[in-house]
């Protein structure tokens, strides 16, 4: 908050990412509590978004496109198979509300069908996955999360209500370290490839949390909106 004799421009400061420390915390608290303030922040984000047109383009390295495609192939099944796997997983998830969470966990751990187009090496014995039940803070059925250390992926089943024009973002919090973003959670089943830098934050006892963020995720790299669900990973 600015001193009382100064006009209030905190929405712009937050939208631009100028604040840190206590000022940022205060502005975030306001964002969570004051819908007018939140709308004002959104309006500033839209305004500043127009400035992206001015950003000079720089050709990305030639090799990068194929590297990205390779990582889609390597870390995930081919899109068609992935889709089918997800449809099945979604079906499983829709039963999950009626069944015990443990059943969902079991389904989550089933390997994806191997893509037929890709030669599959027989994998070495994989490290055990970590599991968490991410309970909504407002009550309701928990989401099931499974972390696969071999693929560095997190899979989540179940759905969480996300306000229009907002994104739900998943965070890993290990001990007293700062939260690390694992990516955005869709309305339905989600599979996230954990960024390399965030992998060391995932272990047994790491807390997973979901916060409500602006579209596209937190602009600051730390949670900026209310935390709506949390759970602890166990081996």
């Amino acid at each position: 908050m600015p001193p009382p004799d100064e006009p209030d421009i905190a929405a712009a400061e937050l939208a631009l990412g100028l604040l840190d420390g206590e000022e940022r915390t205060a502005a975030l608290r306001r964002l969570a509590r004051d819908p007018d303030f939140a709308a004002d922040v959104e309006r500033w984000r839209d305004w500043f978004g127009a400035l992206f047109a001015d950003w000079p383009e720089v050709a990305a390295p030639q090799s990068l496109a194929s590297r990205i495609e390779a990582s889609l192939d390597g870390k995930a099944a081919t899109p068609a198979n992935d889709n089918m796997a997800w449809r099945r997983l979604a079906l499983v998830a829709s039963f999950a509300a009626l069944l015990l969470l443990g059943v969902t966990m079991f389904e989550l751990l089933r390997p994806l069908p191997a893509p037929v187009q890709i030669a599959v090496r027989m994998p070495a014995p994989a490290p055990a996955p970590l599991l968490a039940a991410i309970a909504p803070t407002g009550g309701g059925a928990p989401l099931a999360a499974a972390y696969d250390p071999a693929r560095a992926t997190v899979r989540i089943t179940g759905a969480l209500p996300v306000p229009a024009g907002r994104s739900a973002e998943l965070w890993a919090i290990r001990g007293k370290e700062a939260p690390r973003s694992l990516g955005l959670v869709a309305g339905g089943p989600t599979r996230l490839v954990v960024p390399a830098a965030a992998r060391q934050a995932i272990a047994a006892d790491t807390v997973l949390a979901i916060s409500i963020e602006p579209v596209g995720g937190s602009p600051t790299g730390l949670p900026t909106g209310p935390v709506v669900a949390t759970g602890t990973l166990t081996g």
């Binding site: 990412g17 839209d46 978004g49 992206f52 024009g165 955005l184 596209g216 790299g221």
Partner: peptide
């Protein structure tokens, strides 16, 4: 992974993509 969550009525596509790039870079 996130393209399915893009809502054209909410944001211009380049602003949505650029915001991801800016946030991840920060």
């Amino acid at each position: 992974h996130r393209a399915a969550t893009y809502r054209p009525e909410r944001a211009s596509p380049i602003a949505w993509l650029a915001t991801i790039a800016r946030n991840r870079s920060i």
